[in-house]
Each structure stands twice: as C-alpha cells, then as structure tokens.
Design a protein around this nucleic acid. Structure first.
Lengths: 201, 201, 201, 201
DNA sequence: CATGAATGAGAGTTCATTCAT
DNA sequence: GATGAATGAACTCTCATTCAT
C-alpha cells in the first residue's frame, strides 16, 4: 500500500508542478505563447514527459481552468451564510476583487484570457454557477425593495462588470497613471463608492 | 524638393497599406495569428519588403496601438462640445462601449492585451490623455453638485471600470450565459441602469 | 522439470499473445502503423514488458513473417493430396489468391513489403519451399504432356507472376477502375481464363 | 529577361533535385519513411527550404506520381503506331517490363507503393488512361478473332496481372531463388511463354 | 526599391527504447 | 516478471528575420 500511495503522491506532485509551470507561463506570456516545450524546460523535464501526465496541451489548460473556478466558487459560496442580501452582495464584491488580486493568474484564466471557444462552452458551466450566486443574491435584494425595480440580469451584469472592470484594469496594468503607493487606498474607496451608489437606489 | 516629397508620400502610403493589412488581419484572425508573412501576402509584397518600412513586427503593433488610441481619443474629444457635464459623461460612456464593440481588436490592443511593459510606458501617454478627459468631465460634474462630494479619481476609476468591465466581458466572450439575441437590448439596459444610478447620487 | 516447463509454457503464451496483437494491428492499421505502444495497450501490458519477450520491434516482425509463411506453406501442402497435377496446379492458384485476399497483411509481408535484405535471405527459405511445391507440380504437368515442352522454371515463374500480379494489384488497390461490386465476379473470370489458357497449351 | 529566365531555371532545378532526392528515399525506405527532413538532409538544405518549393509532403508525392505516369504513358502511346493488335499487345508487354526494370522507382510509385487513397483516386486518371490503351488493343485483338471470345476486361486484367506480377517480383526482390546471372534470359523466356500461350487461344 | 532564397528556432506530438524499482 | 517514468530523436510545419542580388 505504501508504495502505491507514494507513487500516487508523486504522480500528483508532478501534475501539480506541470500545472504550476503552465499557469505561470500562461500569465507571463499569454495563452498562445505557452508551449509544451516551455513548460518542460521550466520544470526541467523533457517535452515527452509532459505527455505522460496530460494527453495534450488543451487538457492542461482545461485543468487549470477547472481549478481556478472551483477555488473561486468555494470563496463565493462562503458568502451564502450571510443573511442580509445587501451585505452579502457587498461581501461578494469584496471577495471578487480580493480573489483577483490574490490569484491574478487564475483570474486571468477565468475571465480575461482568449481561449478556444470550443473549450469555453463546456467549462463555463462553472462560470454559470458563480453567476447564478450573484443573480440569486441580487434577486433577494430586489425582493427586499433594494436596487429599484429592475431586471435581475441587468443589475447582475452591471455589478459584475463593475468589479470585473476594476479587476482587469489592475491585472492588465492599465491603472499606471495612479502612483503605485496610492493605488490600494484608492481602490478601496472606489469599491466603497460603488457599494454606496448601489445602496442608494 | 518635389522629388523628396513624393518619395516621402510614397513611403507613407506603403506604411499605411501595411498597417491597414495588419489591422484587418488583427480583426479577422486575432492578435496572435497575425504574421509578417500574412501581411505581406495580403498586400501582395514579399515579407522582406515589410522590413524596409518597419524594423520588426513589434513596431507594426506599436504603430497600430498608437493609431487605435488616436482614433479613440478623437471620438472622446468630440464629446467636449457637450456643455452639460452629466450629459457629456453619459455620452462618453456610450461612445466607449460603442468603440469597443465596433473595433474589438483595437479595444483589445488598448485595454486588454498584456503588452510588454517597455511599450506600455510610452504608449500610455495617449491613455493618460483620454483618462484626463474623463477626469475633467467628472470634476465638472462634482463641481455642479452631482455625484456626491467624492474624490475625482475615485469616481473616474469607478466609471471607467464600469464600462471597461462591460466591454471586456463582451469582447472576451464571457457573457455566454445570455442568449445572443437578447444581449444587445440587455446591454443597453445595463448602460442605462449605470447612468441612472450615477445620476441619483 | 515441472516448474521450468510451466515457465516455458507461460513464456510462449505471452509471446503468442504479443504476436497475435501485433498481427491484428497489422491487419487493422497496416504495417507502418504498428507501434510497440499500441501492441502493449492491446494486450494490456506495459511497453517495457514487450522487451522481455522480444529484443526489439524487428524481431516481432520477423516472427510474424515466419509464421505467415508457415501458414501459407501449410495451405499449399494440402494440395499435394490431389493426384492430377493440372488440377493440383489450379487448386494451388486458387489457394494463392484466396490466401492473399483473406490475409492481405500476411501476403503483403511475404510478397510485397520491401524488407531489409539481411532478413529476406533467412526468411526466404520458407519462400523457396513453397516455390518448390509449385515447381514440382509443374514438372509433373509437363511430364504428363501438358503445358508444352517448356523449361519448368519458366512456366513456374509465369504462373506465379500471374497470381501474384492479380493479388498485389488487389491488395495495393490498383484495380480502382473496376466498380467494387463487379470485382469479385471479374476476378473469378480472370482466374478461370488463366487456367483455361494454360490448359490449352 | 535573362535574369527571370535564369531564376526560373534555378527554381526548376531545385524542384528537380528535391523530387529526385524524394524519389530515391521513397524507393529506399518506403513511402512512410520518407520525411521532409531526410529529403532536406539529402540535398543539404534546411527542411524549411523544401516548403519554398512544395506546399507539403503530399505535393511532392503527387508530383512524382504524375511524372512517373506521364513517362509511362508516353512509352505506351508509342505502340499505337503498330497496326497489328497482337503485335502491339506484345510490344506493350515488353515495354511494360522494360519500363519497370529501367525505372524501378517510378514503377514502384505507380503500381506498388501503399499511398494515401485520397490521393490515389485523383491520380489514377492517368492510370485509367494507360489501362485504356491496353483495353483498346485487346478489344481489337478479340475483334480480329484472337484471344477467344472473352470479356475484354477479363483479358486485360489477366494480361496486366501477368506483367505486373513479373515486374513486382523482380523489383521487390522475390526471385532470389534464381541465380542472378540466369535471370535476364529466364525472364525473356517467361515473357515469350506468356505471349505464345496467349496467341494460342 | 523590392525580393527570392534561405534558415534557425520553435511549435505539438509520437515513438522505440532504457532502467531503476 | 512487470512496469512506471523518463527521454532523445524524430516527425510535419510555420515563423521572423537576414542577405545577396
């Protein structure tokens, strides 16, 4: 048993290190510039070895995508404990941005990267699920008289776009006009501004 | 003088046609699928000829980047004619989204693509300028008692994130959960919702 | 002794199953598309295991080659029971074509494939033997006054070329100009024509 | 003009040398074992260079195939001058074998090699044409009372199989049981035997 | 001014084979 | 006896780039 177990652990560790290397490269160079060969070089193995752990390049991408979404979904599900939907919504927004900043590579993969559509279609089930959490929360808010009498989808997309906009400007370095040391404080204020604005409706 | 002038004109025309071809390929095939060879084939010159007008592939992309920003800037400057800053702000938002949808590859280039930092630093002058137009407009709004008593940068980033979020979700195909035929109407409502929400402050 | 014997039996059984798998792949995918990995997968062993039973890929092919010839030889030896040499000759021809059509990959291996000469020299012992059966039969025919007063080798090669030509045109798909559904009937007539022509001499 | 002409000549020469190298490799190693890299190495150019002259590997094969058939067709058309169809038929047979012996690589390509069927279908037009020459000749023979009252296709395939069998046994070295120095004489006798046998019908 | 010719580097992938366990 | 892990070499093909002409 011990042997099989150790083997399994090693196999997993290897997959892990391939995925990690891939992730870093994805983020550094963009989807199209990640090559099996580069991953191999990064982990100091031969390209052929990669194929012992993944059937092809797409499978690696797919796996990363899945993991990123599980991670994200887990974080957002945490908020379901919060009773007050407006508070829950605020927390979801904060979580969202925090996730993006803590795991920029995952975020990139999930929401920014230009991926082969074929794959996206299947993988978005996960995306749908997290969107639904947002939708549900907003529906409750509206039920309770908040956010005006608006279409749930409209508000949900609005809110999402809001945080995604912020997250992706940061991740893709488009807020270079703000001095770096002022940025964190400013971002917090932007989020606060957004939350308040919404609450006022 | 006449001769030199003609030469210059011709040189420019050639650069122009290279850039046009490159941009078309950009739009048709996406950033990563533009190659010097394809540009050359498109304009019916040899690949080597391209190098007489641009030092390398990056320079072409750089130039396109610049032009994209000029185009965008021109569109946004148009709004300066609008006296009422709140109306102007709304128009800028509408323009922004329209630009993103009409020229997704330009938009991609400007606001999404992970560009080599070296490049960004220089190219963002243009970006700064268009951000300033937004800032200026918002400053006026606040002066006139709109948008609450808030930090200009905070509001500016909020607004920008809002439209950028929407634009980039669209461009990178992350709104797949919305049936395609319903999307345009929905987006309009999202924009309207955003404008109203802001106006209420 | 019992133990060694059992071991040998098991070793043989394993070789057998490797060869069978290889042959099936041969037939399904053609000579060039058989790989050690595919054989291994087919018998559900690891590729490395194959090397415990055969020194390399070539040895497997060699073995198959040998077996193909034995099989063929066995079929032809069956005809020796036929007393009348002309009838026997006809039967040998029919057998030949049948074998080629039933086991095209064996046939290919034996009579068409460009084999490394080193190999051919050893393997052709079998080939010689079957050629001798033909020769012998023809000699008898001539003795009995058939086929004119000709050199045995001349007639033997003539006959062999006849059936081999047919077989190899079929196997290598060179009779594409004949509609597929008409082919079987036509081939039979061609064979009949050959037999008759020969009998008339 | 001189320059363009020279360029064209050089281009042609290069194509020629690629084709020649490919042909040699085809014959030496078999279709599946010819690689662009090997061709390149053989002519001492880089693999990429090959792609300046041919769009892909298939095109090289296709070209060789075409050339082989034109050559062969030209030879067979020569026989059309012969009035007497039986004499013409004999000449065609002799030509056939001579062609196979003089240009074994071409012959291999045309009648033996296992090629991708997709291609074969198109390229066989040429094959059809040469088969038709044979058919036509045989039809005339039958018209004139030779070869019995038989189906033209039956006789045509019979004749073809006859010479093809001989040719391919030679080319693929399956007549190793005949001492090499006796072979030429023997082959001639085999051909003569075939011709006579047929004439007797 | 323009280009045809050439190439080194790199892409994804598969394979036969080895070797420590 | 069996194998998981690993790899070097090979495959087709594309690309940015150079250089002599």
């Amino acid at each position: 048993m011990g042997i099989t177990e150790r083997r399994n652990r090693e196999k997993l560790r290897m997959r892990r290190s391939i995925l990690d290397a891939a992730m870093k490269l994805f983020v550094e160079d963009g989807y199209d510039n990640v090559s099996i060969r580069k991953i191999a070089k990064r982990i100091e193995y031969s390209p052929a070895t990669i194929y012992l752990y993944f059937t092809d390049k797409d499978e690696i991408f797919f796996q990363l995508h899945q993991e990123a979404f599980s991670k994200f979904l887990a974080v957002q599900k945490e908020t379901l404990k919060i009773q007050n939907p407006m508070a829950r919504l605020a927390k979801q927004g904060a979580n969202y941005l925090e996730f993006a900043q803590k795991h920029p590579e995952h975020y990139d993969l999930m929401f920014i990267i230009k991926a082969p559509l074929r794959k996206l279609k299947t993988e978005w089930n996960c995306g749908f699920e997290s969107f639904d959490i947002l939708r549900q929360t907003i529906a409750e808010c509206i039920d309770q008289g908040h956010l005006g009498n608006n279409n749930v989808d409209v508000v949900a997309i609005h809110v999402w776009a809001n945080v995604h906009g912020l997250a992706s400007l940061i991740i893709r370095d488009r807020l270079a006009m703000i001095p770096e040391d002022l940025l964190p404080q400013l971002l917090q204020e932007v989020m606060a501004f957004g939350t308040e604005t919404l609450a006022n409706r």
